[in-house]
Design a protein around this nucleic acid. Structure first.
Lengths: 218, 218, 218, 218
DNA sequence: GATGAATGAGGCTTCATTCAT
DNA sequence: GATGAATGAAGCCTCATTCAT
């Protein structure tokens, strides 16, 4: 849907978007540091210099890409939980997130992997969209705690991070499992492919009931 | 304990270890890509070329560092769960892992952040120590499932990944929160510092019982 | 008088002049090489491409600017010595030149500094206006020599260059001294500001009588 | 004497000097801005990167070159006036300077032309060696004024600048006249070649007695 | 004539790696 | 084994110039 052919030149004025799309692909292919600006330009069908009409630097390109995609994710999540009864919002949130990963693996790759490639990004860049994401999730949990539905032993913002960790790791495992293995290494070490959408139910189950079976009452 | 002074020159033949230690510090400080081999050499108190007597390349240095540290982690975890009753091993495993993060933040930073900085590392390198880690955790879960103590709806290896995601994310949040914030940005966006060791209990609680309160029986 | 507002857009067809004016300001501000064509365009209130309707290249812009200003200088000098008794022309010439520097420091900066920034300009460009300048000055000197008023030991064209060197250096020192010192360096190294118009008398004095006091006769 | 062959590779440890020599030649050939670092490296017989072991940047190379050469000039001038009776020092100074220009035209070219190519250099860099030069010359003049031998109407530091302007302009004219004319322009516009050493006498004559002939007393 | 988005050649600089000592 | 000066490939980015509108 949002993926354009690299050679498409019809629309103008969407050059910025074309560059972002190209960057997403190239970053996913090689990683941020190994990605070459000139290769992104070629993939976008523009001259090298053109990129610098829309972005200040390669770093800015990564940050802009991340912000745009994360913003889209946040919007989709907000839509997904709108109109859903509060007690079902957590499930809706998690399912929607993993559905997005499934539908837009390129974007997911940027969010799970490239995001962590730039120390600058990790250590110096305050990340409003990610904060927004955590606040949304934390808000759902806090509301549940206030309604007395959720255990409030764990601070909502910590629980939010734990849940993010779970689904982010699943997304990462799934995205990497999709890669045709380049390595000549021993087979079997790569995570087995699994159904990321179905995994949403597992996450919800773990988060709601935990793993421990109730002791069977007599 | 394992931290040597950079200027220590006493023992010879431990040069390899000195270099790994220096690399850990420098990688933690700047990230893998921004780290300079010459800076690692200086920190280790050796000449640039000496590093290449012990490691094939900068990449090899990262991988060796990761493997060594992860191996130590795995050994520590194995020790931590040895002699512990099966039903308590999951708790012991999680607590031990987060305790290690707390005691060796430098190593934790390498494991949580730098690990993801090299695409090579993420995509091309089959990672025996990480596989070992996941197998150990998965084994604990599978055993619990077989004993009928744990819900076996979720495949053990997926549950292991989810749990790893949780504790890795907590470790990451905690490690980053330790950084003196360089940015002049708006305060409050940086994750609040929390007690990583105490957080172990939260993780165990979430994993065992989940968040949902039992419906109050009348 | 010759300085137009950068935003002035009234007269059309004087675009060429507006561009020259803008170039003068920007060259004076940053130097020829550091000056950006796009900045000149902005200062002139025209599009980048428009400059190329009036000038072949950035080099051509510098040369055109120099020629135009030098031509104006030569015209002003010719006017200044017209009708002046031959024996007073040298004095009139020098005073007029330094008066121009004082009144049009922007133009002076182009003539004294930027002129030397382009190797092309210095080495490959035959400079008719500068030749004209030297001929005018040399002519005054040669006439004085022929009238027997001036020492003819020194070839007139060499003397002309020496005099030009003197007043050009004074102009340069004066122009640079006008700059608000950006450097935080030790004070006192920047040339002290002096009265460039009054300095004309010193030049005339040096050129006519030299520095050496006549030996007092008993 | 100080000019080494570009291909000479015998001496090591004089690499820094070889690079300076190469830079002098290349700057003289193309000008600072048009000079390519890689061409300097080739001329010096070193790799591109080697230059950056000895100089921080291309700018630093120009500044270092200027400082070193100007320092040599100042030392030579100090030697030239040492032991000379005060009243003859001005003559000795001027003659020595123009002799240096004659003997080291490459260095002269850097001092007269390239020096002015970098705005940075002209406007932001406080130039201790040039200040030293002017102080030496100003000191000679001031001493003469105090001894009552020289006219003190003109401030010594202004007179020093005027004299510098004269000899610098002569040096420039002479250096440029040496160039094989690349231009296809009209002949005759290039300054005629003259004897720069002999011109020293003219400068001294002008500075001491001026151009004006004493009116013949009856 | 005027525009300004787009171009793309090319430079300065970095830094992992080598190798003569 | 150890050194560290030297290498040189290669990338990010700039900016004068063009040309379709």
């Amino acid at each position: 849907m949002t993926v354009h052919s690299a050679t498409e030149r019809s629309d103008r004025s969407d050059k910025r978007e074309r560059i972002l799309l190209a960057a997403e692909r190239i970053f996913a292919r090689h990683g941020f540091f190994a990605a070459r600006v000139s290769e992104i330009a070629k993939e976008a069908g523009v001259a090298d210099g053109t990129i610098y009409l829309y972005f200040k630097s390669k770093d800015d390109l990564l940050i802009s890409l991340f912000e745009q995609r994360m913003k889209q994710v946040n919007e989709a999540l907000r839509t997904a939980i709108a109109g859903v009864p509060p007690k079902d919002q957590l499930r809706a949130f998690i399912k929607a997130y993993l559905k997005l990963v499934h539908d837009e693996p390129g974007a997911a790759e940027v969010l799970t992997i490239e995001l962590r490639q730039s120390s600058k990004f990790m250590k110096e860049y305050d990340n409003p969209q990610f904060v927004d994401f955590l606040r949304m999730l934390g808000g759902i949990l806090a509301a549940g705690q206030q309604r007395g539905e959720l255990d409030d032993t764990i601070p909502a913002h910590v629980a939010a991070r734990m849940i993010f960790g779970m689904i982010d790791e699943l997304a990462l495992a799934w995205v990497l499992a999709r890669q045709p293995s380049i390595s000549t290494g021993t087979p079997g070490t790569r995570p087995k492919k699994f159904d990321i959408v179905r995994a949403a139910d597992w996450v919800v189950a773990l988060v709601t009931h935990g793993l421990q079976l109730k002791e069977k009452s007599p």
